[in-house]
Design a protein around this nucleic acid. Structure first.
Lengths: 207, 207, 207, 207
DNA sequence: AATGAATGAGTGTTCATTCAT
DNA sequence: AATGAATGAACACTCATTCAT
C-alpha cells in the first residue's frame, strides 16, 4: 500500500514537473500531452487519470508555481534590517527569484496571453500575494519613520515597479537582445541590470 | 487589371490584420489558420497563397508591428524640449504606445515564449530600435550638459527601464489583477501607474 | 460475514439495475462503464469484479430482463376466462408489460441491432418464451372448440402480431411522432392505440 | 472542373453509402469513423470535410434514407385499383420496402434508441410521411363509399398497424428467432408472415 | 472481499499544408 | 490570379480492461 501510494505520488509529481517545463517553454497552446507524458516517463493516459484535462493540468502547474513563490516570500526575512538595506534585499530577492525560476516567467507569459483564465478559476489561488504587499507596507512605514523613505508611496505600485524591472528584462530578453543588439543574458549585462534596477528603486523610494 | 491588383492588396492587408489580432490574442500556437481566414473574409487557401506558411504569416505580422513602432518612434519630436520635459515626453510616448497597441504586447509575449525565433530569422528587422537608443543617448547628453541629469546612465538600460514599467503593467495585468486584488485596467489605476512610472524614471535620471 | 455477503449482493444488484438503465437508454455501444458505476454508487472496478466484462454485464442484464418477463408471463392467468375475454386479457397484458417496462424495449432494440449476439450465447435463455406460446396454443384451441375463433391460426404468428402492435408503437414512437406530427406518448393516443390493437387482433382471430 | 466536381460528388456519395451501412449495422454509437472511411475507400479526414461531424454524417444518412422512402411512396400507384386490392397492394409495398431496405430498419432502431435526436434537428425532414397518410385516407374513403371498408378507421393508426407488422418482424427477428426457436428469416416464414399480416389488416378494415 | 494504480488501443476531431486546375 | 478538393499527422481525450496488493 505504502509503496503503491508513493509510486502514485511520484508519478503525479513527475507529470507535474514535466508539464511545468513544457508549458513554460511552449505555452499552453503549444504544449503537447504526449510530449509531457514522455518527458515524465509515464503515459498520456496517466496524465488524464490524475489531472483530468489539459486545463486541469495547467491549473495544477500554475498553482504549484504560485505556491512555491509564496513559500519563498514567506521565508524572506527583512524586518530585522535597516529600511534601506531591507529594500535592497527585497529587490534582490525578487530579481533572484525570477532569475532562478525561468519556468515561472514562461508560465505567467502564457497565462497572461490567455487573460488569466486558469488563475481566475482557481479557488486555491485567491489572495496570494497579499503577504508580500503587507511586507512592503511595513517596510515603507519603517523607512518613513526612520526618515529614510519619502511618504505617500503606494506599496502595490512599488511592488509592480520592482517586479517589472526584473520580469520584463528576463521575459523579453529574446526580442530585446535581437532588437537592441545586446546579448541580455550575458552575465555582465545581467549583473548590470540588477544594479540599475536596485538603484532605480532606491532613488524613487529614498528622499 | 489595376483593380485586380488593388483587390489582391486589400485581401493581403485584411489577412495580415486578422492574423495580427488572432496571434496577439491567442499566441502563435493558439492561433488557427481558418479562424484568421474567416475573420479576414477570405479563405485559408489565400493565406498560404500570399504568406506561404503559418511561420511566414507570423513573421509578416511581427515585421509589420515593429515597422509601425519604428514609424511612431521616428515621428516622435523631443529635441526641441528642455531635457526634463523631453524625458517626460519620451516616457509618455512609450506608455501611450503600449496602451494604444495591445496587439503589440500580445505579439511580443508570444514571440518571447518562442525565444524570438521569428524575429531572429527576419532580415528586415535588423537594427530596428537603434534610432530610439540614439534619441535617448542625445537626450541624456543634453541633460548632463544642462546640469539636469546625472552622468553615467546607460541609454539601453534606461530604455529597458522605461519600457519595463509600461509593458509589464499591461502585459501582466491579468495575473496581477487576480493576485493583487486590484483591477489594474481601471482608468484611475492606469493613470496612477503612469504617474508613478514617470516619477520613478525622473528620480533615477535627474540629479 | 452475513452482512458482508448482503452488502456484496446489494452492490451487485445496484450495478445490474444501473446497467439496465444505461444500456436501455444508450444501447450497448453507447453505454459507459464508469457512468454505470457512478450511477450505482460503486466503482468501475467492482463492475469487472462481479461481471467480468461489458459483454458479461450486458448478458446479465438481458437475462434478468427476460427472466422478469417470463415471471410475469407465468403469473398471467387467462385459462379461467372465456376465449374472447382471455384473448383480450392477453393483449392487454403484453401492451401493459411494454408500457411499464421501457427498459425492456431499449434493451431489445440494442440487442437486435447486434443481431442477438448476447442472447445466442446465453445458455440460461434457451426456450424462454415457450410458455407463452403454449398458453396461446391452448387459448386458440379453446376458442376454436367454443366456435369463437377461426381455425388454422399459428400461435407463433399470433404472438408476433400482438407483440408487434405494442412494441413498434412504443419503440418507434420518437421517429413516428416526428414524422407523423402526432405526439404518440400522449395519454389519449396511447389509449386509442391500445383499443385499435385489441380490435385488430379480435377481428383477425374471431370468426 | 467537371472532373473535380464529379470526383467530389462521388467521394461524398461513397462516404454516405458506407456510413449508412455502418450506422445501420452497428448503430450510431457503435459505428466508427475510420471504418466508414475505409469502407468508402476514402479518408476519415474527408468525412469531416464533407459532413462536419459524426452527428452531421448520421443526419445526412437519415435524411437520405427518409428521402428514399418518400420517393418510393410517391411512386406508389394504388388509386386505380379497387379498394380491397389497393389495400393489399399498400401492405405489400410497406412489407417489401422493409424487406429490401434492411439498413432503413437498423437506422431507425438506432435513431429511436436516441429518441430521434437527429431527426428532430433536421429541418429537411419536417412533414415527411404526410403523403402516405393522405393516400391511406383517400383509400379508406373510397373503401367506405364502395361498401367494402368499415367506417371510422383512423388512417394514422392504420398506417402504424401495417408498419408495425412488417417492421417488428424484421427488426426483432434476431431475438425472436432465438426465443421462439424458429428461424424467422427463412423464406417460408417470411412468406407466411406477409400473408398473415395482409390478412390481419384485411380483417380489420373490411366489414 | 475489495480496490487504487495503471494501460494500450482507440475516438472523434482538427491541424497546417499541398494538389490540380 | 485564385480556389475547391484532398491529406497525413497530430490533437485532446476516452475506452474497456488488468495489475498488484
Amino acid at each position: 500500500m505504502a509503496t503503491r501510494r508513493r509510486d502514485a505520488d511520484a508519478t503525479r509529481a513527475r507529470l507535474l514537473r514535466a508539464a511545468m517545463q513544457e508549458f513554460a517553454r511552449l505555452g499552453y497552446a503549444g504544449a503537447r500531452g504526449d510530449s509531457i507524458a514522455r518527458r515524465a516517463h509515464s503515459s498520456e493516459r496517466m496524465l488524464y487519470y490524475y489531472y483530468g484535462s489539459k486545463d486541469g493540468l495547467f491549473r495544477a502547474v500554475l498553482e504549484s508555481a504560485y505556491l512555491s513563490l509564496q513559500k519563498a516570500e514567506r521565508e524572506l526575512r527583512i524586518d530585522h534590517l535597516p529600511p534601506r538595506e531591507a529594500l535592497d534585499e527585497f529587490c534582490r530577492f525578487v530579481w533572484r527569484y525570477y532569475l532562478d525560476h525561468p519556468e515561472f516567467i514562461g508560465l505567467l507569459n502564457s497565462e497572461n496571453l490567455q487573460q488569466a483564465r486558469h488563475l481566475r478559476k482557481s479557488a486555491q489561488l485567491a489572495e496570494l500575494v497579499a503577504p508580500v504587499i503587507t511586507l512592503l507596507s511595513q517596510l515603507l512605514a519603517r523607512g518613513v519613520a526612520a526618515g529614510d523613505f519619502r511618504d505617500g508611496i503606494d506599496p502595490v505600485e512599488l511592488y509592480i515597479t520592482i517586479a517589472a524591472l526584473g520580469y520584463f528584462y528576463l521575459s523579453n530578453q529574446y526580442t530585446l537582445s535581437a532588437v537592441l543588439g545586446r546579448e541580455l543574458r550575458d552575465p555582465q549585462h545581467l549583473q548590470a541590470h540588477w544594479q540599475v534596477s536596485a538603484e532605480v528603486v532606491r532613488c524613487y523610494v529614498t528622499r
